[in-house]
């Protein structure tokens, strides 16, 4: 369980985090989204107990990170931004060091290291010094370090940055597998990841929470939600016919691939009507799709809307 209460962080005159409060329960995977410099990493650093908040506070599993730092840190696995580690150490020595600090000993130590190494496919590089690893492998070592003691709470700052598509898939699988009984917060710039791993997403910009919802609900805010896209032979005819449908609000044609999108009036569903219309008019359709909504568009409108308001204020 993670709880933050009016977290603020001031760096000189820069306000990096400006009153962030949320609560994440076990079983939740919270995606932390926001443009560069939004304050995602700073918030995570404060929860992890690295940076002291200017005001407000955070709790990990009920332990206040400032008043009971050791107890809070024991419950926490943390992957800092950029996955820093000790370059001169071999992967094996590094994980051994973390295991020692985490108080793992004997059979359990072996078992936990083997488990983390297996999950992140580090078996082949155990003897290599970390500074000679590629960026993706370094990130995986950082992840292995974070999950080593099987913590109740995981905070991962851009865990899939720099991973190849296979490894991204693996890491998402890893997060999903751990999600059941853990509290997990991941920050990411990859929006498709939000769907793949998160059951809740918070969008922040300029240190403030702008949206806090499930990925599905966030997508529903998109104007693409429930829109119908299609590729047809006769674009002009289809466009005209669609525009005449009563529940269709507007029709757009992508200038690049000539793909047509019909947007419904608020709260209406048009998929059936569109299908019937195309059939009735005898318009040849090569592809027809019901849109769920586009997270990137929601992300843009939420964060840029806030920026405009900020500029006006």
């Amino acid at each position: 369980m993670i709880e933050t209460r009016e977290l603020c962080k001031q760096y000189g005159r820069i306000t990096a985090v400006d009153g962030i409060s949320f609560r994440v329960e076990a079983g939740q995977v919270l995606g932390f989204l926001g443009p560069n410099g939004a304050g995602k990493s700073t918030t995570m650093k404060m929860i992890a107990g690295f940076v002291a908040p200017t005001s407000g506070g955070a709790k990990v599993c009920g332990f206040d990170v400032e008043a009971q730092p050791l107890e809070a840190k024991r419950e926490l696995g943390y992957l800092p931004e950029g996955a820093p580690s000790y370059g001169e150490m071999t992967v094996a020595a590094f994980l051994g060091f973390i295991a020692d600090v985490r108080g793992l000993a004997g059979e359990r130590r072996h078992q936990r290291i083997d488990d983390a190494v297996g999950r992140l496919n580090l078996g082949g590089v155990m003897g290599q010094s970390i500074e000679t690893l590629s960026k993706g492998f370094r990130r995986r070592v950082g992840l292995a370090q974070a999950i080593l003691h099987d913590p109740k709470v995981l905070i991962l700052d851009e865990p899939t940055d720099g991973l190849d598509p296979n490894q991204k898939h693996e890491v998402r699988g890893l997060i999903n597998a751990m999600a059941k009984d853990k509290t997990i917060v991941v920050s990411t710039h990859i929006l498709e990841e939000v769907h793949a791993v998160c059951n809740r997403a918070i969008i922040i910009a300029r240190g403030k929470v702008l949206a806090d919802d499930t990925p599905d609900k966030l997508e529903a805010r998109s104007r693409y939600h429930q829109a119908v896209s299609m590729t047809v032979a006769n674009v002009a005819a289809a466009r005209e016919a669609l525009a005449r449908l009563p529940d269709v609000d507007s029709v757009e044609v992508d200038p690049q691939d000539q793909r047509i999108t019909a947007f419904p009036r608020k709260g209406r569903s048009i998929f059936g009507a569109v299908g019937d219309l195309l059939k009735a008019q005898g318009i040849a359709v090569s592809e027809l799709q019901l849109e769920r909504g586009r997270l990137d568009e929601v992300f843009r409108s939420v964060t840029q809307g806030a920026a405009k308001e900020g500029a006006r204020a």
């Binding site: 050791l70 024991r74 950029g82 580690s85 000790y86 108080g103």
Partner: peptide, 14 residues
């Protein structure tokens, strides 16, 4: 410089 201080100081040690 390497940022490992963030790792060290978020481990359960004083």
């Amino acid at each position: 410089k390497s940022g490992s201080i963030e790792l060290l100081l978020t481990l359960p040690i004083t």
